[in-house]
């Protein structure tokens, strides 16, 4: 048995790395003289060495996976954000598409006044453009927010936006004739027009 409580206390303080210099000196000199305390101190040090050197195990390889699998589902917003940062090109592309679609949509919404391309021989009656019988119109006709009645001939394309076309039996259109009544048709029509214009400038 060690000599006194005080000495044992110092031993533990020493092992905790929490001892004053003076006390450490006293402890050392006491241990050199006293066999019982020496043995006790040695036994404590051995114990610490055993505990410190106990081998370390590691958790299973799929530890992280198991933890992650058992977490409550994360917020949608975060998943969405991560997806966006991981796919910058798709993000940019979809943003572009969204903006261009919405601007076209706005134009479509705004643009509801009756108008038509000025060509010779055309007659207008109550938002209806008439190509009179026996007359020939040279060029394309675009009618917005109105109808077209073709009794004569058109040497070109006819497009009706937000309206109807009436082709009389005697009427004739040499180019394409098209009705655009839905916003998607309208977008498609715009896309085609842009493409056509690009192709035209390229061939020039």
């Amino acid at each position: 048995m060690p000599c006194s409580k005080k000495i044992v206390q110092w031993m533990h303080d020493y092992l905790d790395g929490d001892i004053q210099k003076e006390e450490e000196q006293q402890l050392r000199s006491h241990i050199q003289q006293c066999e019982a305390c020496r043995e006790h101190f040695y036994a404590l040090k051995k114990t610490v060495a055993f505990v410190e050197n106990v081998s370390h195990f590691t958790p299973s390889d799929d530890f992280i996976k198991k933890v992650m699998y058992n977490l409550p589902r994360e917020k949608r917003r975060v998943r969405w954000k991560r997806w966006l940062t991981h796919h910058p090109f798709l993000t940019a592309a979809s943003l572009f598409l969204l903006l261009s679609t919405s601007s076209l949509w706005a134009v479509w919404q705004e643009d509801n006044e009756f108008s038509f391309s000025k060509q010779e021989h055309l007659i207008v009656q109550n938002h209806t453009v008439i190509v009179p019988e026996g007359k020939v119109v040279e060029g394309d006709i675009v009618v917005r927010n109105g109808d077209i009645k073709i009794e004569g001939e058109v040497h070109g394309n006819v497009t009706v936006i937000n309206g109807h076309k009436y082709l009389a039996s005697a009427g004739e259109v040499t180019g394409q004739i098209e009705e655009v009544n839905e916003v998607f048709d309208w977008i498609w029509y715009n896309v085609k027009r842009v493409g056509y214009n690009i192709a035209k400038t390229l061939t020039k």
Partner: peptide, 25 residues
């Protein structure tokens, strides 16, 4: 804290050995 689970995986990776060791002892 914003709810990003991938960030938590990094934390688990860093501390899993120590925490496991603690529980095992």
């Amino acid at each position: 804290k914003k709810g990003d689970q991938n960030a938590f995986a990094d934390i688990v990776e860093m501390y899993k050995d120590k925490i496991y060791q603690l529980c095992y002892r």
